[in-house]
Amino acid sequence: MPGVLVIAEVADGKVLPVAFELLGAARALSAEGAGPVSALVPGQAHAQELIARGADVVYVAPESLAGQMYDAWLPAVDAALQQSGADIVLLGQTASLGRDLGPALAFAHRTAIAPEVTALKLENGRLRVTRPCYGGNARAEHTFAGQLQIASAKPKTFDALEPDASRTGEVKTIDAVGQSRITVLSVEKVESEGVRLEDADVVVAGGRGLGDPSAFAMLEELAKLLRGAVGASRAACDLGWYPPSSQVGLTGKTVSPTLYIAVAISGASQHMAGMSGSKNIVAINKDPEANMVKAAKYAVIDDYRKVLPAFIEEVRKLKAQG
């Protein structure tokens, strides 16, 4: 019996939301005939939640697996694959786990992984994926030669189902746990104040054209006013103006806010790859030919140093009017 196995990562005692998003995608595949949906998670406590989000079967691995590196996970994934008979594996493309576990699993099974897919469908019972490549300039569609088909997706690529507490499913225990060769010595979290970038309804993002890091204070002021979050281009992050955890794009976060305000960002394909799903884009840029301007709904062609203070003032006024 084929099926879809979703790997659910746990951090700080919580299932990462990308697992719920993948369960949503897995249910859609199941409706196309991919078979039942199962999930692998460390810790009994999360089983019911995964069932409510779409799993038919939850394989519970020891809680100690949470936070471990990819190689510790391989035996548990293999056990879940064996028991479920799943021929599709979906993982979240996280730096902490999926980015490593996906290819490790693929090479261990001598099959391919399609990383960072943006669409999944079933064709003649086999998986067909779409993924951006060439820095977001192109899209590729792939199928798999091997029996086992593995795909990963960045957080916020697919929609999670609303939790349904009345859903029922089976819970099974797996005790296979590997020993990682890699030791974690320390973890340093970059705390962001206010709304999380990937959850924000409004994102105010800045690029290299800001010219100096202090300009980010202005972006923060605007973001606060709009109850949004601040993002940055990689050029701005590489200059050390803003932490890499705020980077938007191919190698940064994927965001799809209702409003994305791009200040002094040219709109390179690798940046667009992380935010082109935004419902409304505003570009503030000196250059009318900038790619970001073309992608925008509204654009102001001028020096942001003059535009932004006046914009903030006007927003504040409009907000005060209620």
Binding site: R139, E141, G146, A283, K294, A295, Y298, A299, D302, K306
Partner: peptide
């Protein structure tokens, strides 16, 4: 291992409204 079935450039059309006025403010 991974079969390439299709490769294409996604279409994007610009619908931008450039805000025109006498001053940046």
């Amino acid at each position: 291992w991974l079969k390439l079935e299709a490769l294409y450039v996604p279409k994007v059309e610009s619908k931008v409204e450039i805000i025109e006025a006498d001053s940046p403010e």
